[in-house]
Structures are given as structure tokens and as C-alpha cells.
Design a protein around this nucleic acid. Structure first.
Lengths: 190, 190
DNA sequence: TCAATTCTGGAACGAACAGTCAAGAAAGGC
DNA sequence: GCCTTTCTTGACTGTTCGTTCCAGAATTGA
């Protein structure tokens, strides 16, 4: 048995995320993985189990990082509504790289319970953190009150997915910014 | 050479669409295809070329059918704005089945020009048909005028993608209806 | 320095894959 | 009847896949 060190493990996992987000699970071969991760084939299997376990880990790692980035933006501003805008701004700015979360849901839907679990956990964490922010913005009169905080979060998440798909389909930055503007417009008070 | 008849060809193509939309290109084997299409392996290759050509044809057929369904709903109502709602209603109602367009863009992005071509053609047709409808609704005062017709269409398409991803991720009908309501809210005049 | 551990590269495995071949069944025209 | 064409069937090819095995290089710890 051979296991690579914690530090290299995380770096290798990041490399795996990079391959999977671009090519999906079925579109990625173990050879692409060992090349990108710069470790031997044997180390890959000893450290991560098999390809599916590595994929699940990669999705989990990506989801954690992405969720934390969302939350950081949400909480980074004085006014809560500015946090919402900042979160969407970041999504638009980084939309040129494929989203592993969207890809993973597209590729497998609900067919792999262990994968669904990962998605649900990330969704739960983001939802929990965003709820406060949304309510705060609603109380400040910056966000419409006719929709519940959860409905607002669902809409933001769906809008993020829509923006990322548009980007993957070839839309430019201006088009994505327009999508963001319209999405936020849905949440403005009348 | 053996080529199956036109009628059976279309039925077989529909079956292929059903498999591809659920499992993607890489997740679909030729055996799954011949089983679903109920034709011999040889007939498949003689009639459609290879797996990729069949996939491209399936995406094209799906895109055509979906675009026409959108346009039918758009034009089916007295008031243009009701057409927009009807289009979104249909998307929500049928969101339990995966969308081959979204899947295809997710899986391949812009990496296959011949596939991108198919998407662009469908986008162009829908955009052309929807523009009139949007402008009509704007003139009737049922749709906000601050966004251009093209921006509105882009937003509707992105919202449709967002709704479909949400559904693929497990969202129920009420959640999808809520997404639709909020998306349409973005386009309402203030 | 020596020995144990950790990692690499290459070879090899069976399985599954896309695609081909060839033989025969079914159908159609004469 | 018979011959030609159209389709089905199942076996087959070469390739690629995920995974394992193994020998040796590199690294580590004492």
C-alpha cells in the first residue's frame, strides 16, 4: 500500500477537479487523470480507491470550495443586497470554466445516491448561510418580500446554473451580465 | 448496404433521443441504442453512419422538436405575454425528463463545431420567432421595455435551462413553478 | 549508512467498447 | 417457381477502458 502525503493529495485532487469539470466522469480516462495529477497510476488507486471514489471526492471538494466562495461574497459587504450582487458578479466573472456541480447533476441526475448526498450537503450549507443574508436584505427593503427566503435562494441557484450553461454554450461576458441584471431584477421590490 | 425505411428511421431516431437525453453520449453504448431502437446493429451503422453521427442527428431532431414546441406555445395565445407564460408552463410540466440540449452543451461545451452548429441553428430559429412575440408583449405594456427583445430571450432560455437543471437535481413541481414565477417577474413592467 | 517505506513506470489482465463481416431469413418483383 | 434486394442475427476485430501486478527507483527515518 502506498499513500501520498496530505499536501500532495490535495494538490492532486485539485488537478482531478480540473479534468472532471471539463470532461465529465465518462469523458475522463484514468490516463488523463494520472497525467494531470502528476502521480503514478498505482498511487491514484492506493490513495483514492477507484475512479468513482475519486470523482465523488472531487465533486465534494469542488462543492465545498464553491459554496464557501459564495458565502464569502454574500457576507463580504456592508449591505446584504450588495452581497447577493457580489456573489452573482463572481459567478459571471468565472463562468468561462465549466462548473463541476452542474456537470455532475447533468450527467447523473438522481441516479447515484452517494453523489446526490454530496449535492444535498452543499445545497444545505449554502441555503443555511444565505437565508440570513436574504432576510436581512428583505428587512432592509432591498429585496422583495413576496417570495420566501428559500424561494429566493432556489431562484439564485437556478439563475447561477442558467448563467453557467449559457457561458458553456458560448455566451460572452456582456450577455452573462445581462442575465445577472435580469435575475436580480426579479427580486427587487416594486 | 441496408437502410431502414423512412418511417421506421424516424421512430428509431426518437428512441435514440430517449437514450441519449438520459445517459449522454459517453454514457450510452451501442448496445443500449440497438435495444432501445429495436433495430439490428448493422442497420444502425448502415442507416446512421457511426455513433457520433447518430448523436448529432438525435440532438438535431430533439432541438427541432423542442424549438417548435416552444414556438407553438408562444404563438398559441391571444395576448403575447400569455404565450410566454405558456411556454414556461410547458417547460415546468415536462421537466421530469432530461433535456438533450442542456446535456449536450454540458457534456461538450464548444469543443465540437458540428454540434455547436446544431445548437446555433435552433437558437437562431427560436430567437427569430420569439422576437416578434416579445416586442408585441412589450408594445402591449405587458413586458418591461428596459431590456431588449434579445436580452429577454436570452434570459428566458437561461431560465429554462436553470429550471431543467433544478428538476434534474430533484426539485419538485412546486419549486419549479416558483422558479418560473420569479423568472417572469423579472420581465414584468414596474 | 542501511533498511523500511513510499512512489513510479511499464506490462498485463479481463471486460466493455465501437465498428465490421458474413451467413441467412424475409420480402418483393417477375 | 426463382432471383434480387432488404433486413436481422450473431460472431468477430482491434482498441480502449479500469484495474492489478510487479520490479525497481526514490525517499524517508534511525
Amino acid at each position: 500500500m502506498a499513500r501520498i502525503k496530505e499536501f500532495d493529495r490535495d494538490k492532486a485532487l485539485d488537478a482531478a477537479v480540473g479534468v472532471f469539470r471539463e470532461h465529465g466522469f465518462d469523458g475522463t480516462s484514468t490516463e488523463m487523470l494520472v497525467n494531470a495529477m502528476k502521480i503514478g497510476r498505482q498511487s491514484l488507486y492506493d490513495t483514492f480507491g477507484d475512479k468513482w471514489a475519486l470523482y465523488r471526492l472531487a465533486v465534494e471538494r469542488y462543492a465545498c470550495a464553491e459554496t464557501e466562495a459564495h458565502i464569502r461574497e454574500l457576507r463580504g459587504k456592508e449591505r446584504a443586497i450588495d452581497g447577493v450582487s457580489a456573489m452573482m458578479d463572481r459567478v459571471v466573472a468565472e463562468a468561462d470554466r465549466a462548473c463541476l456541480g452542474v456537470n455532475s447533476i447533468c450527467e447523473f441526475g438522481q441516479s447515484r445516491p452517494d453523489l446526490t448526498e454530496v449535492h444535498l450537503a452543499a445545497d444545505h450549507r449554502l441555503r443555511h448561510a444565505a437565508r440570513d443574508c436574504i432576510r436581512q436584505a428583505q428587512d432592509a427593503g432591498d429585496l422583495d418580500r413576496s417570495a420566501s427566503a428559500d424561494a429566493v435562494i432556489d431562484f439564485l441557484i437556478a439563475s447561477i446554473a442558467g448563467i453557467r450553461i449559457a457561458a458553456r454554450g458560448g455566451a460572452g461576458q456582456e450577455a452573462l451580465q445581462s442575465l445577472e441584471r435580469l435575475a436580480l431584477r426579479a427580486l427587487m421590490p416594486r
